[in-house]
Write a protein that binds this DNA or RNA. Structure first.
Lengths: 336, 336
DNA sequence: CTAAAAACATGAAACGTTTCATGTTTGAGT
DNA sequence: ACTCAAACATGAAACGTTTCATGTTTTTAG
């Protein structure tokens, strides 16, 4: 059906090499250029990227692996990453592993087979061995949002320790003493750091840490919902909750709504990630906002530089500051 | 770096054909199987899907084109589609065209060059010619959420006319007479149908249609925000608003919040798409929920059947019912 | 034990490109 | 008009698979 380079050659009477050169932006005689252009139109020719990839062993394709396509942080990240990649002639194959490390491994293999030139990943943390194997094959890997302790590869993250500390400290400044945190899975560096920020502030102000106020969930709304209920059912419930990702934030709000607990009068809340959410929730929600554009920029830049070879040698760790956006969801419990 | 089929052949002393047969699940002598398996381990062999694709002219890859990666409806749709595809040995290359028909065309070409076996698309409506060209190349196309009037291809949609009518009729039943609708772009079939449902109900109840109450936006939050403000600024503002997609719904809520307009006491609202949203918003939001699983199932099924050849001939139009989930965001304006 | 059938192995050709060493044309300078 | 670079064209080989017609081995049945 589709014309190939050979058809163009036959049609124009020129050689394969000439057509190939033209296709790739090389110089050809004016007369030939016209002929080729006409033939391309006529035969509806499109480069077969598969064949090209086989020859060049560059697929001009980056694998992108994320925990879930329904995760707001991930989709807004990869949307931006894709935009940059395509600007540089690359495309992304996006895979979600549905938070399942086994599936994450499969996707890794899949992408290798697809001959991707590099992999950008938001890793589960349970596939370090497999990621190392990818690196061993000479395929660059950039992790985003999370770092992998045993892996020497480029990473782009936010200073989770610091921003978490800021959020908790803001609670403390508003006289809160029973501050709960709902964390993500323990093996994710990001979750760990956010917890550490929480603990550090407690240490700094010499507040006692009540283990009941520290809950670990997965990064799903359901989890936020359940853990929030658990917190509310405590003999001495918290006066403030720090929800450490977007879906958990949603879950917390839905639990509070269900029990008709008013924010911030009855309970203060700081959420995470989606600035739009703060406009939609009433009262306006205070939350931690991550610099999505910066994260995406840095990630793509790192990957492209590794691919072009302009960046070599030791892995880079790029760290950005998140921002605490204060709105109306926190007040002092003493003002009741 | 990576071992090829040839290396395996050399390493085992067997022929290329045998290795190939084994890789593809064919039968080989037991002794040979062992040898091959050992060699594969040893040489860390992975099939080069690029080379395979070149030979078979099947990439086992489906192109998926959506308006935006930040569109909730789209991401939840493709997340499910991907899941099904990978279950059947296919993978998806996901492209978003950022609501830009020009970019949509580029993505179409890109996917053709990538030799995708089929394309699943949520089309802008402005690329019918290009989509026809894809079909002319013998590549199956399935449109989801929207149909293309001039194109004969499979489509999976929701009965937008009907559900929109139900929503508006619900307003009418609650004594609303000034009902606003915020539609999507006019050239999108889905938007058109939702408007038609609105008009039909007005006709049915012999209500006058005030053109001021019909607003057209794009499917972004900002648009919902602005158009909602415009509605509120009308000399005689609506008593109810029907927001016809998720982002518009968010925009409407944020505009209402900004002006401290209470739902439903001061204004009734029916939103769209995200059931979780209704739990997070207070009061619980009534909304139209689309059967995402069914949409995704049908889409994938149609595509796979076209690819396997089990479905041939005239295009199928699969239509599902959406559901109106009533919560607390609508009351009669007379009960004020 | 033998012949025929069944099961498996072989290797060259092909898929649509790019590459590169070699060949041909062009036109500037004299 | 001739020479010589410079500019461009040529076509065979290669990328890593699959395919298929043919060849070889194993199994089965008589």
């Amino acid at each position: 059906m589709a014309g190939t380079i050979k058809d163009i050659a036959k049609h124009t009477g020129l050689s394969l090499g000439t057509i190939s050169k033209f296709i790739n932006g090389g110089r050809v005689r004016e007369a030939n250029r016209d002929k080729i252009e006409r033939a391309i139109k006529e035969l509806d020719f499109h480069v077969n990227e598969i064949a090209r990839g086989l020859k060049t062993s560059k697929s001009k394709t980056i694998g992108i692996i994320i925990p879930s396509m329904e995760n707001f942080f991930c989709t807004s990240l990869i949307s931006r990453v894709e935009k940059h990649l395509s600007k540089h002639g690359y495309s992304g194959i996006i895979c979600d592993y549905q938070e399942d490390p086994q599936m994450e491994k499969e996707k890794l293999v899949f992408l290798i087979n697809k001959m991707v030139d590099g992999i950008i990943i938001v890793p589960s943390g349970d596939t370090q061995k497999e990621i190392q194997q990818v690196l061993d094959r000479g395929i660059p890997v950039v992790t985003v949002d999370r770092i992998l302790p045993d892996i020497a590869c480029d990473s782009v993250v936010v200073d989770n320790f610091k921003i978490s500390g800021e959020a908790v400290e803001y609670f403390v400044g508003q006289d809160h003493r029973r501050i709960a945190i709902i964390c993500g899975p323990r093996n994710i560096s990001t979750a760990e750091e956010r917890l550490n920020g929480y603990l550090a502030v407690h240490e700094k102000f010499r507040l006692t840490v009540d283990p009941d106020l520290i809950q670990f969930g997965d990064y799903y709304m359901q989890s936020g919902y359940e853990l929030c209920r658990r917190l509310l059912d405590l003999p001495e419930p918290p006066t403030a909750i720090f929800a450490t990702n977007y879906d958990i934030t949603l879950g917390v709000i839905s639990a509070l709504n269900e029990r008709n607990i008013r924010i911030p009068e009855q309970l203060s809340l700081i959420g995470f990630d989606n600035l739009n959410l703060s406009k939609v929730i009433k009262p306006a929600l205070s939350l931690v906002v991550q610099p999505m554009d910066q994260l995406a920029d840095a990630t793509t830049k790192l990957m492209l530089e590794r691919l072009e070879g302009t960046l070599q040698g030791i892995p880079q760790l790029v760290k950005f500051e998140a921002e605490l956006v204060i709105k109306d969801s926190v007040i002092s419990p003493l003002h009741k």
